[in-house]
């Protein structure tokens, strides 16, 4: 379909889709520690330990300074820039009771209500 060609740009030899992270090998390597920590949150005991001692938990998983800062600031775009993958980051968001509309609102700079309305407004008649 023609839209694909129109929006795509090359960036550093890689295809860049505006506003759209492509979680490739480079990102997966960069984000490994952060994603590994988030994967551990499948276990309720680990979620409790994180809440009890966030610094200690992040240190145990050897987060990079950039990743630690992004987690400290609860900044999803910064976590993605640091190699985070949204499927794993969702488990971190879940600790704070945040769902994918909350996460979407933060990334797009919208209020949660406005983000939800934007989704509803895409409904067809």
């Amino acid at each position: 379909m023609s839209i694909a060609k129109a929006q795509t740009k090359e960036r550093g030899g890689k295809r860049a889709i505006p506003g759209t992270p492509v979680f490739d090998g480079e990102a997966a390597a960069r984000g490994y520690a952060l994603n590994r920590m988030c994967y551990s949150f499948n276990d309720a005991a680990n979620r409790a330990q994180f809440l009890e001692d966030e610094d200690g938990y992040c240190a145990r998983f050897e987060l990079t300074p950039e990743q630690r800062e992004a987690v400290r600031n609860r900044d999803v775009l910064a976590m993605i820039a640091a190699g985070g993958n949204v499927y794993y980051l969702a488990k971190l968001a879940g600790i704070f009771g945040l769902n994918v509309q909350d996460v979407g609102a933060q990334q797009t700079g919208m209020s949660v209500d406005a983000f939800k309305q934007m989704l509803l407004d895409q409904a067809e008649d």
Binding site: P21, Q107, T108, M118
Partner: peptide, 11 residues
């Protein structure tokens, strides 16, 4: 779900 284009739908 992710990025500045979060919420994108293409009917």
């Amino acid at each position: 779900l992710d990025g500045e284009r979060a919420g994108f739908i293409n009917a």
